[in-house]
Design a protein around this nucleic acid. Structure first.
Length: 269
DNA sequence: TTCCAGGCGTATC
DNA sequence: GATACGCATGGA
């Protein structure tokens, strides 16, 4: 839970247990959207109005959710306790669905520094995160490799209305009027939302799961990448006890950052 | 030089 | 349905 106050052009947020740096650099987001810093338990969002805070950043940082309660449920498990001791300040960001989808298409068979590099190239070139229209132009400069055809597939599906991520005036125009309401990923049950996203060539179970977790706030989603599979094989050979937990995705992020950072420490020694 | 990176589509059985 | 392989790029 958080409290906030507006001071000058900034918003001061106090949110116990939250770590801004961990949250922004644990592999769930590949670029920073807001000028923010943390001093103790206070997060300062620079050049943000109160209205912008309440309608945008409060949701983005998931400030309204009680992560201490979520963590208390996981911490009974010894492996989860170690992960939470290590990086329990992480929160799941509620990112833009389109940006999340594109970012995790780029992420496949790729490493985090290069994912960031590619996204930065696109943002620098288009002066914004690329729109579907942007991605249908020549994007060879971004050196996305074999993923380029997948990015264009995502752009085509969204532009044509075959896949509708969120309810917008534009989607209402493009959509098949017979079934528009049920065809919006944002409004679908998680199961159908997953298969809807996987209509896009280049979107498999992992990318769909990441898009739902980070882009649609479906915190029960549990993406399995190479690192999570390593963690599960090492610590949970008989299965992950929280796999059906409503906040399994939060547990996943603790495990992911913990084992990945541990491996980095080993490689440095 | 070879291996790996927040996987996926395709071919093959 | 499971398993093997290629895929662009670039750092270690």
């Amino acid at each position: 839970m958080r409290k906030y106050a507006a001071k000058g052009n900034d918003i001061y947020v106090t949110c116990p247990g939250f770590d801004l740096n961990l949250t922004l650099n644990c592999g769930q987001a590949f670029r920073t959207l807001v000028n923010a810093e943390q001093k103790g338990e206070t997060i300062i969002l620079h050049d943000v109005t109160e209205d912008e805070f309440l309608t945008k950043w409060d949701i983005y940082f998931d400030f309204g959710r009680d992560y201490e309660k979520i963590k208390s449920e996981f911490i009974t498990d010894p492996t989860m306790k170690r992960a939470i001791d290590f990086c329990g300040g992480i929160r799941i960001l509620k990112q833009d669905p389109w940006e999340t989808l594109i970012s995790f298409i780029i992420s496949q068979n790729n490493n985090i520094p290069r994912i960031k590099l590619i996204i930065n190239r696109l943002v620098e070139h288009f002066n914004r995160f690329p729109t579907p229209e942007d991605l249908l132009t020549d994007i060879a400069f971004a050196k996305t490799g074999f993923r380029e055809k997948y990015l264009k597939s995502a752009a085509e599906n969204v532009l044509s209305g075959k896949v509708i991520l969120t309810e917008t005036p534009k989607s209402a125009v493009n959509a098949d009027p017979k079934s528009a309401a049920e065809n919006i990923v944002e409004k679908m049950p998680t199961e159908s939302a997953r298969s809807e996203l996987m209509k896009i060539s280049g979107v498999g179970p992992k990318v769909a799961e990441c898009t739902l977790l980070y882009g649609f706030g479906r915190l029960e989603c549990f993406p399995r990448d190479v690192w999570i599979n390593r963690a599960l094989a090492e610590f949970y050979p008989d299965g992950f006890p929280f796999i059906s937990h409503p906040f399994a995705g939060v547990a996943q992020q603790f495990l992911f950052h913990h084992i990945r950072n541990r491996e980095l420490c080993v490689s440095l020694s």
